[in-house]
């Protein structure tokens, strides 16, 4: 043991000398840490990322928040009807909003390992203005609008088809009714069946 310890002494001493010399020539005692890109481990609970494309606007995150710091901002489109906006000044980074979000497999609201939230010239107004908003909101809204338009088109097409079908049906019925009137009561239920099948196929 003693021999080992004796061997260690010069090594330790050199280490210490190097450390002290380094400290002597280092420019400052306090280091700036936030631009070093430190990675926190696993799920650090930092700044929120809200993905408006995934969000369905259910508002579960807003209800789960213990300090009620999530506002649901109406978007003007149908889906998502509203997207969350986090008032960062009041948030305590508990992560319960992330737990509550129902989207799968990826959550629409997530806490990232981004922890440097630096404001300069901090006043109360600035603090209250400091919010986390969905980053891709415009794209998502555009997409949503396109989707809506598409849906609208489809709907109108469907409607047109329906109307056409109805017209066709009406015509057919009008045609069929004339002979049926002549033939009598027994064939009426069969006609009803035919018209139903026809309408299903058209849809």
């Amino acid at each position: 043991m003693e021999a080992k310890d004796a061997l260690k002494i010069p090594f330790e001493a050199t280490k210490k000398v190097i450390r002290v010399t380094k400290a002597l020539f280092a420019p400052k005692a306090t280091e700036i840490w936030w631009d070093k890109g430190i990675k926190r481990e696993l799920h650090y609970r930092g700044k929120h990322i809200i993905n408006a494309e995934l969000c369905i606007g259910c508002g579960m995150c807003s209800r789960a928040c213990p300090v009620n710091c999530i506002d649901m901002v109406p978007t003007g489109v149908k889906k998502p009807r509203a997207v969350p906006k986090v008032r960062a000044n009041e948030c305590m980074f508990c992560g319960l909003c992330e737990d509550a979000c129902p989207t799968k497999p990826e959550k629409a609201i997530k806490l990232t390992d981004h922890y440097s939230m630096i404001l300069e010239d901090v006043t109360w107004d600035k603090l209250t203005e400091y919010v986390f908003e969905p980053e891709n909101l415009e794209e998502a809204l555009e997409k949503a609008k396109k989707m809506e338009e598409l849906l609208e088109k489809k709907k109108q097409e469907a409607l047109k088809k329906k109307q056409q079908a109805q017209q066709a049906k009406a015509k057919a019925e009008a045609k069929k009714e004339q002979p049926s009137l002549e033939k009598g009561k027994e064939e009426k239920p069969q006609q009803g069946d035919n018209s139903q099948k026809g309408s299903k196929g058209e849809e």
């Binding site: 926190r40 696993l42 650090y44 609970r45 992560g95």
Partner: peptide, 24 residues
């Protein structure tokens, strides 16, 4: 604790129904 829950002090990690995170 930070590795487990993401925070060092106010961990909010135990909820009714179990614990919030997997013990990795």
């Amino acid at each position: 604790f930070e590795v487990y829950s993401g925070q060092r002090i106010a961990t909010a990690s135990i909820v009714p129904g179990g614990v919030r995170y997997e013990p990795t």
